[in-house]
Amino acid sequence: MKKSTGRTLYVEFVIALFIFLFVYTGINKLYTIQEFRAVLSKSPLLSFTASYLSLILPVFELLVSLLLLLPHTRTLGLFLSTMLMALFTAYIGYMILFTPKLPCSCGGILKDLNWSQHLLLNFALLLMSIPAWLLSKKDKRFIAINRNSRIPV
């Protein structure tokens, strides 16, 4: 298997994984929005913005999924996915350090994980998303160079 095919497969796999993750958690958060809002309102960091965030966050997750789905916006989608995972990981780190007694405001079955398991999962996803984003950026540049070379003199 060629190196570039392997890279493309890796990027495709990460994109599919994030689409699945964001659509799944986004739908679950919207489906249980009252409960999600109630849990956010108990968070020391996010309580002031719970009513807005409980709607904005799942909608943003679905929007990122759409960006990942469309071939022309995949690099942007991967960048936003990486940023989201970094934010989620930082938030979980804060919760573990300062308020481990509070429940998680995650969507679907992720709610059944404890804080440490959730941190581990998020960290693994973050580590997967960074190279996928960098590879996606690299592929975009490669295509651009090839296109330029085809411009008639």
């Binding site: 495709e12 796999f13 994109i15 599919a16 994984l17 689409i19 699945f20 993750l21 964001f22 659509v23 799944y24 739908i27 679950n28 489906y31 249980t32 409960e35 999924s65 990942l68 789905l69 679907g108 079955i109």
Partner: peptide, 18 residues
């Protein structure tokens, strides 16, 4: 692959009991 992921996520979330 993306469409399969979307369908899987919707199916999976509809079977997740809250």
């Amino acid at each position: 692959l993306g469409i399969i992921a979307v369908i899987a996520a919707i199916t999976f979330s509809s079977f997740t009991k809250e």
